[in-house]
C-alpha cells in the first residue's frame, strides 16, 4: 500500500469507528422499540432485528399524555428560542460592535 492510501484508510477507519461509537445506542434503542412486546424480556436479547413489530411504538403514541407532552415540549422550545434570541441578539451585537468600559 502506498503511504497515501494508508493515510486515507487511517482517516476513514478512525472516522467510522467514532461514528459507530456514537450510533450504537441509537441502534440498540431502535431494535428495542421495534421488537414484539412478548420478546422484549428474552435473555440473551437478540442483537439483530429478528422479529419486527410496531406494537410498542403504537402503545407509546396512544398512551395518555404522550401527545400533549410533545406539544408542551414544542411550545416551551419555541418560547425559549424566541425569548433567547430577543435578549441575546442585542447583547451579542453590543459586545461585538462596541468597545466600552467593562466589556
Amino acid at each position: 500500500m502506498s503511504p497515501r492510501v494508508l493515510d486515507r484508510a487511517l482517516i476513514y477507519g478512525s472516522a467510522i469507528l467514532l461514528a459507530v461509537w456514537v450510533l450504537i445506542p441509537f441502534y440498540i434503542i431502535a431494535v428495542s422499540a421495534f421488537t414484539p412486546q412478548a420478546r422484549i424480556f428474552d435473555f440473551p436479547k437478540p442483537l439483530l432485528p429478528t422479529a419486527f413489530s410496531t406494537d410498542t411504538m403504537q402503545f407509546f403514541v396512544e398512551a395518555r399524555g404522550v401527545v400533549p407532552s410533545v406539544i408542551n415540549s414544542l411550545l416551551v422550545a419555541l418560547a425559549t428560542i424566541a425569548f433567547g434570541l430577543t435578549l441575546g441578539t442585542p447583547a451579542g451585537y453590543a459586545l461585538a460592535r462596541f468597545h466600552f468600559r467593562g466589556r
Partner: peptide, 12 residues
Amino acid sequence: QFLPFALLLPSI
C-alpha cells in the same frame, strides 16, 4: 456611548 449599555440591559 449609551447604546451598548442599553442593548445589554435586558439580558443583564
